[in-house]
Amino acid sequence: MPDRVRVRAMMPPGHLRTPSYLRGKTGVIERELGPFPNPEQLAYRQPAGKQPLYRVRFTMGEIWGDAAERPEDTVDAEIYGHWLERL
């Protein structure tokens, strides 16, 4: 059973690599990618702590609800660990 996670629905200012359309959405971890420098600090030349990066798979039904063309189709995206809460 793959780990279920929810993307935090926060809207902080600055350079982010978490697309708005996935915030607050629930998916499953497709694979773990290892630690990567946090782009939110890297973008401003601040010392960037490493964050674990995950590929998370979302269904179109979860993202778009009734507007999905085919709810079982999926979007996979890379999301940093501090944006995810385990369910």
């Binding site: 990567f36 890379e78 999301i79």
Partner: peptide
């Protein structure tokens, strides 16, 4: 066809 699952891959970070 509807029987094919589409997987979209959004290159949001380092891959």
């Amino acid at each position: 066809p509807d029987s094919t699952t589409i997987r979209v891959h959004d290159s949001t970070a380092d891959m």
